[in-house]
Amino acid sequence: MVGPGTGVAPFRAFVQERRALGAPGRNWLFFGDRQFTHDFLYQLEWQDALNEGALTRINLAFSRDTPEKVYVQHRIWERRRDVIDWLDGGARFYVCGDVKHMAKDVRAMLVRAFADVKALGPEAAEQAVRELEDGRRYLQDVY
């Protein structure tokens, strides 16, 4: 689940549903916004979900907390081995939020991640992501 800013909304529902159903399996959220202090939406709910096991992992990117801007795609890159490992294990990759920059940047970063982790050429890496899309395992709700 990659849902910076208001893009986190559906994932809040995902996690609520999984908690209500007692769903097994793992899930991982990448969230980002401007400032940790003011923009960490539903922070206490994510903390509870982590404590109760309804959310397995979370990584955060706040772009205005440091002189260098950090976005969700950078966090994906930092953990690219685990991300690719999860996808190899059958995980679905959901993206929600900004269509103009974020969605493109995240997709491009996932291509780079495939290339790096699996030592693929650019075209083969692109193909790997396209296969996820064709298999309805790379799903977007962007606006």
Binding site: T37, H38, F40, Y42, Q43, L44, E45, Q47
Partner: peptide, 19 residues
């Protein structure tokens, strides 16, 4: 934490504005 923001943050389901 920023004590000016405590009640606002409880409403927003955010922890205290720790720093």
């Amino acid at each position: 934490d920023d004590r000016d923001l405590r009640s606002e943050r409880t409403r927003k389901k955010m922890e205290k504005a720790f720093a």
